[in-house]
Amino acid sequence: MGELIANFGTGQVPMVAYLGVSLIMFFSGVYGFLTRKSLLMILVAVELMLNAVDINFVVFNRFLFPGQFEGFFFALFTIAIAACETAVAIAIIINIYRNINSVQVGELDEMKE
């Protein structure tokens, strides 16, 4: 925290600030995943978690291993995968809607018994 305050106004954002944002994003995602009832909102929560992870990759690469690119590339990969995953998830959600006329996650318990 001291470093954050020390660098305040110097124009350079410290690593901890990035990580703080990503932490908040990730747990917002977790919270959303656990509490939202709509499948679409849960999907949004998942995206939020993925993006928080992306930020972590980029930040660690930028601050800990400058001059290398693995973290950046991994973030790009994740973005691509996330896009695919969203497409698939939405397709599934549409099918669920066709079957049970609802996208509420609480009603998806037909496989229980």
Binding site: V30, F33, L34, T35, V105, G106, L108, D109, E110, M111, K112
Partner: peptide, 14 residues
């Protein structure tokens, strides 16, 4: 335990 509620599973996992 096997409620069929995805969010409960996720909570237990967390």
């Amino acid at each position: 335990f096997q409620s069929g509620q995805v969010q409960q599973y996720a909570f237990a996992f967390l």
